[in-house]
Nucleic acid binder design. Structure first.
Length: 254
DNA sequence: AAAAGCCTCAACCGCCGTTTT
DNA sequence: CAAAACGGCGGTTGAGGCTTT
């Protein structure tokens, strides 16, 4: 389902993200934020273009991103907004906490469009359309969907403010939900959780304490490295007391 | 059991608007 | 004011899983 990893002419990797790349990106953004997507991969030790990092973070790694398990209400919202807005996927996604434009777009093209074409939201009991799967398998899958509870918290977006959004998961269990398989905890989920817990342990309570820039490991006057979650990062470029904190917070997602 | 076709969705591409220099 | 840099968006692709034949 994913593209084969490859390299382009400039040596930047393309295609599927490896778990290690994910961890590097997650650790770096968690610690330093996304101050500049184009420069970020260089400092995070990633052989990726900035766009690729941004997309991966926003659509996959960012906390509170929901995956699959569209509720009937969400689907109705998508259809309704699509009627009025057209293919404004980012605008539609903005009305669906935890959903990304890419996810909404995919869901529209793969599920809702067909139903919308028939001018009816032809739904079964749970609001999902049946595909060509065998009945038993589908029922099992749907039962698992229904067992999964997704915290309906708004996206955590920090904009021009040093304070956190109060919306936060009750626990780091957020990482154990919404897997692609919908009904199992994958290795990646466990690593997410472990990473999150490691970060919490490292910097106090991530969700409840005021944000601070941890530059204890960084010194802009030499090449000492910063680190997070076991990864060593290159020198953080704008530290050293010169940066305007607020100038770098746009797009800073948690 | 194998082959063919279909479906899903992560990721890439290119364009555009905004910001910075 | 112009050019460059950057971020964001929507369209599209294609590998791999799933279903049907």
């Amino acid at each position: 389902m994913v593209r084969t990893p490859s390299c382009d002419k400039t040596g930047l990797r393309k295609g599927t993200w490896t778990p290690e790349e994910d961890q590097k990106l997650r650790a770096y953004v968690t610690k330093y934020g996304c101050w500049n997507w184009r420069q970020l991969p260089k400092y995070a030790g990633l052989q990726r273009c900035g766009k690729s990092c941004r997309l991966r973070w926003l659509n996959y790694l960012r906390p509170n991103v929901k995956r699959g398990n569209y509720s009937k209400e969400e689907e109705e919202t998508i259809v309704r907004l699509h009627e009025s807005l057209g293919n404004k996927w980012s605008a539609i996604a903005a009305q669906l906490p935890g959903r990304t434009d890419n996810e909404v777009k995919n869901h529209w093209h793969t599920n809702l469009k067909k139903r919308f074409k028939d001018k009816t939201l032809e739904t079964k009991d749970d609001g999902r359309i049946k595909r060509g799967t065998s009945k038993e398998k589908e029922e099992t899958k749907l039962n698992n969907h229904n067992l999964q509870i997704v915290p309906a918290s708004p996206p955590l977006i920090l904009e021009s403010s040093i304070s956190y959004s109060p919306a936060q998961p009750a626990s780091s269990d957020q990482f154990s939900s919404d897997t692609k398989d919908n009904n199992s905890v994958t290795d990646d989920d466990n690593s997410n959780k472990a990473l999150f817990e490691a970060f919490e342990a490292d910097s106090g309570s991530f969700w409840t304490e005021p944000f601070f820039w941890d530059n204890s490991n960084i010194n802009s006057s030499n090449n000492t490295l910063g680190s997070a979650a076991g990864y060593e990062f290159a020198e953080f470029p704008f530290l050293g007391g010169e940066m305007d904190f607020y100038d770098h917070l746009d797009g800073f997602y948690f």
